[in-house]
């Protein structure tokens, strides 16, 4: 079983996130592995761990990111969780990509991996905590002409078939698709493991493989800011909220709350 996990390097949601010149500022001091990708890594590792020994030995989990060099941090974290390989695709030509540009680069990287040997499964998190679009997994699947099983809260792989259970806004669904497939994992699917000492040490010596756009079969006109079909034309911080009106409950806190709502026409 060969699994590619698509991971993203994002600004930490605990840090002050901002834009400059309509682009997200990616400050290396405040960048991190998208937390939801930890669920993807966990799912991939568990799928491999559940295999019979011989198959497990022959398996490979590859973390793949499209990011500037700072993005190595996301791959280092992936190593610490236990992935075998880490690949970063960086290229100035990719900066400013929209969903389709990003997808094209990710899919091209998977295809290059595929040139080495089959990739049975592509796994992603359910969203990136910076953009929160949640559409890249489905787009990558379409680009690779594979089925997408997304937002999984339960995952099983058996006899070449992927089965998931998910809860959409409308229904609870059990879906299946034959491998090779694309899987996105919800945060409810698992609890990501904490890296142990052994893995942290091993992660230090692992080499990150760096690819550029030229290494991929990629139409450069369709990626980057020039190829983007949408453009962020304005970005401004919201005005700060006025100081909170804080009421200490001394027996009439509920009344104060009700009066606030009535006074502000919220009832």
């Amino acid at each position: 079983m060969r699994i590619a996990v698509l991971v993203k390097y994002v600004p930490d949601i605990n840090a002050e996130r901002r834009f400059a010149d309509c682009r997200v500022v990616r400050d290396p001091a405040e960048g991190t592995l998208n937390e939801l990708d930890e669920n993807a890594l966990e799912a991939a590792l568990r799928i491999v761990e559940a295999l019979p020994e011989a198959e497990r030995e022959a398996s490979e989990v590859v973390a793949l990111t499209v990011a500037p060099p700072e993005g190595d941090l996301a791959l280092r974290k992936s190593f610490q969780m236990g992935v075998d390989r880490g690949i970063r695709v960086s290229d100035d030509a990719l900066a400013g990509s929209d969903y389709f540009g990003t997808t094209a680069a990710l899919a091209a990287a998977v295809r290059r991996l595929e040139a080495e040997g089959p990739v049975d499964l592509v796994v992603t998190g359910m969203a990136a905590l910076d953009g929160l679009g949640s559409v890249v997994p489905a787009l990558v699947a379409a680009e690779l002409d594979r089925p997408a099983l997304t937002f999984a809260k339960k995952v099983a792989v058996e006899a070449g078939t992927l089965e998931i259970v998910r809860e959409t806004d409308e229904a609870t669904e059990t879906l299946t698709a034959p491998l090779p497939a694309v899987l996105s994992v919800a945060d409810t699917a698992n609890t990501p493991r904490f890296p142990n000492f052994k893995l942290i040490m091993a992660a230090r010596t692992k080499q990150i493989e760096a690819w550029s756009a030229a290494d991929l079969d990629l139409d450069l006109a369709a990626v980057g800011a020039a190829g983007a079909r949408t453009e962020t034309t304005q970005a401004s911080p919201r005005p700060e909220k006025p100081e909170v009106e804080l009421v200490q409950d001394k027996g009439s806190g509920g009344q104060a709350l009700a009066e606030y709502l009535i006074r502000n026409d919220l009832v």
Partner: peptide, 23 residues
């Protein structure tokens, strides 16, 4: 509280029913 317009520091089992009754 950092992102609130209005807040009550108190036990919700006391505050919410009282507010509900007045509303």
């Amino acid at each position: 509280f950092e992102i609130c317009d209005f807040a009550v520091v108190g036990d919700l089992t006391e505050v919410l029913p009282q507010a509900a009754a007045i509303i």
